[in-house]
Amino acid sequence: MRRFRIGSEVFEEGALDLQATLASAYARRERPLCLCREPGCPMYIARIGDLHLIKRMPLTGGGHDPCCDSYESPYELSGLGPLMGGAIQVDSDSGMAALKLDFSLSKTGSRAAPQQIGNGPDSVSGETRKLSLRGLLHYLWHEAELTIWTSLWTGKRHWWNVRWHIAEAAKQMIVKGRPLAETLFVPEAFRLEKKGEIEQRRAEALAPAAAPASGSRRLMVLVGEVKEFEPARVGRKLVVRHMPGFPFMVDDDLHRRLLTRFEREFSLWEADPQSHLMAIATFGLNPAGLAVIEEIAVMVVTENWIPYESIHEKKLIEALATMREKSVKGLRYNLRADQPIANAMFQSRTQPVALYIVPSGADDTFEASLQEMIAARAEIGSWVWRISEGDMPPVPF
């Protein structure tokens, strides 16, 4: 069980008086210290209703003890590594992450062809110094801790919970000097009896995206679950779950390029009715008040919102979900599919283990990069599944 220092006192995670102390510390903007290691790792306090939670500061997981629930694998083992210090710059004092994006959050003049579809910037090499649209979705998912699962969590996650964690993560991010939370729109869980109140809150949240009388238009970022792409008289309508009667307009060219670029994600989504297809998109409101998508990327996730990019990853995730210890799904961010990552991390109580999947047809460059990753982190155990060699080998737990 984790122990925290708050002010001059030390509390165990399950202490009865912890909530009252956290409420007081939250009001004072005081940071707890996780005592898994001395002199302690700074954390921050988040509030959901009357409940206060202690959360890890962005990208500080490597500073925690491997036995601590706040530990995370070195970011060099995922697509996060090439982005650190460039696309993502974390202030060690405030914990805020300044993001550099390779897509625009404003629009001037007529609509141009989107950059995030086809062979766009979310398929670039590790030297990229800006965060792609898909990369931003991965970073939000990572910082919201939606990549984590353990069999000790009974039941399943629900959208209201996913939404809250994403919104909290966005509060720790800055884009061009402004909080990302001011630009991000994540629809709240829809309830028919609250329809009027929900629509009023949505109108207020989307007001910044309204078309101005002149000058450039401000764009917002949508993160939501795809229900379907309906045919429209011109183009398509993206229907987002929890937003009935509020379509996002998508032109035909953008839709065609989306299906081509993310063919794998759409095929996985169609094959598994329990999975969700998540969309991240930039959008604005036209003079008629309609939401128009400018750029878009998608990601497929399991029933419990864990991302995956192949049936092999899904099989591994399902195996990890039966374990009592925590597992963390690795994400690709900007990296191409032909570059290795630790597909998941199993947090053993004795040693963390990185799990790697080598796809069929992987070349010598892939293998060499994989061996370099494993050798560079000798203190972390490794497990490798080469798809060409057959079924998944026994997991080392």
Rank of each mutant, 00 (worst) to 15 (best):
A46V: 15
P121Y: 14
C67S: 15
F103E: 10
Q115P: 02
P74Q: 02
V90T: 15
H52V: 09
Y44G: 01
L77I: 08
G40P: 12
S92M: 06
R111K: 13
L83Q: 05
V90I: 14
G79R: 02
D69H: 09
S106A: 07
G109W: 02
V124C: 10
D69I: 05
Y75F: 06
L80A: 10
I88L: 08
G62Y: 13
R47G: 09
P82S: 01
D50Y: 10
I45A: 06
A112W: 04
S123D: 09
L53I: 14
L53K: 13
G120F: 06
S123C: 01
T128W: 00
E76D: 14
G85P: 05
E127I: 10
Y44R: 15
K100Y: 00
L105H: 03
D93M: 01
G109I: 08
L59R: 07
G81N: 04
S106H: 09
A97L: 03
R111G: 00
G49I: 12
E72H: 08
L77A: 02
G79A: 01
G61F: 07
L77G: 03
I117T: 15
G118R: 07
Q116H: 13
G86T: 10
L83C: 00
M84P: 01
P114C: 08
G63S: 09
S78V: 00
L105T: 14
G109R: 06
C68I: 08
C41F: 07
G81T: 07
D102I: 02
D65L: 08
T108W: 11
T60A: 12
F103K: 04
S94K: 06
A97F: 06
S70R: 08
E127P: 00
S110Q: 12
M84Y: 02
S73A: 13
G126K: 10
G95A: 01
L80G: 04
L83A: 00
H64K: 12
S110V: 15
S92V: 08
S106D: 11
E127W: 11
P114L: 07
S73E: 15
K107R: 14
P82Y: 01
D50K: 13
D91N: 15
A113R: 13
Q116C: 11
S78C: 01
Y75L: 01
P114R: 06
A112P: 13
P82L: 00
E72V: 05
S106T: 15
G81C: 02
S92K: 11
P66I: 05
I54P: 09
T128M: 01
L53D: 12
S92P: 01
S106G: 03
M43A: 11
I48A: 11
R47C: 09
T60M: 10
S123P: 00
E127T: 12
Q115N: 12
S78F: 00
G118M: 04
E72Y: 03
